[in-house]
Simulated assay, not measured.
Amino acid sequence: MQPVRTPVVFIHGLWLHASAWSPWLEFFAEAGYDPIAPGWPNEPDTVESARADPDAVAGTGIDDAVAHYAKIIESLPVNPILIGHSFGGLVAEKLLGQGIGAAAVAIDPAQIKGVLVLPLAQVRSALPALKNPANLHRSVSLSRAEFRFAIGNTLTEEESDRLYDTWAIPAPARPLFQVSAANFVPHSEAKVDTENAGRGPLLMISGTDDHTVPDASTRSSFRQYPQQGAVTELKQFEGRGHSLVLDHGWRDVATAALRWLQEKGF
């Protein structure tokens, strides 16, 4: 009987389809893992169908995504590794804090409750969703220009537009409202159990030129975790933006995540 390959659950963020993880799935499968990349609740299976039915994901919140992925994880043969990007990183942090997942890598993770820094670039990146309070119950799409500022700002216009045309989809605006109000809501869905000393190890990764989740925000989230207790580490990629998981340099980030996991015994 062959041993069970360690599952890796990839969790994407807003405005990108789950299939954007395809290169990572192949990379981790070749390294001996059993990777999957499920979409968010009610997310259509393809980019084209997601664009055709934007209301499918409207109103989805952070805890909806957490419960969705927790249910998927329950069906796996062993406790998986979690790798999330942007709001997927926040979801991975929440799951790990709940004791779900053996280890996690949170890449440019959306800020958790307790983070006070709010760079102007981050505000501008979120404006397509936050500018209209009615968007709380809607899905929102980015234009090519908005995508380039928020996600592809370190890329050429040509590469940014190519990524937009290939992977961009409408996203629920609710998580952005939840994060923006987190420090004023006692039981915010952006709250993460950073005090759980029994959880698995966590690696946080930031791009120093990220507009959507600036490096200062990731470093502030990192500081919410105690220095003692469960392993929490931070790695920064100089000059990289929010597109670092899917642009021409994605393999550098994937390799760093893989090596860290292997160093931790996974």
Rank of each mutant, 00 (worst) to 15 (best):
7 P>Y: 08
7 P>A: 13
237 F>M: 07
12 H>R: 12
110 A>D: 07
106 A>P: 00
11 I>K: 08
60 T>L: 13
132 N>K: 13
170 P>H: 07
112 I>G: 02
236 Q>P: 01
94 K>E: 09
28 F>K: 01
181 A>H: 14
1 M>S: 14
113 K>A: 12
133 P>D: 10
96 L>Y: 02
65 A>L: 04
257 A>M: 01
96 L>I: 10
155 L>V: 09
68 H>K: 12
28 F>Y: 14
201 P>S: 04
245 V>D: 00
35 P>A: 15
149 F>Q: 01
130 L>Y: 06
108 D>K: 00
96 L>F: 04
214 P>K: 00
186 P>H: 11
108 D>R: 01
81 I>K: 03
248 H>K: 13
210 D>H: 11
224 Q>L: 15
248 H>Y: 07
190 A>Q: 07
172 P>V: 07
167 W>V: 01
1 M>Q: 10
249 G>N: 15
140 V>N: 04
231 V>F: 03
170 P>A: 03
80 P>T: 03
217 S>T: 15
113 K>T: 12
182 A>L: 11
23 P>A: 02
227 Q>D: 11
11 I>W: 09
39 G>R: 06
28 F>D: 04
171 A>N: 03
103 A>W: 04
32 G>P: 02
209 D>F: 02
34 D>Y: 07
183 N>P: 00
205 I>D: 01
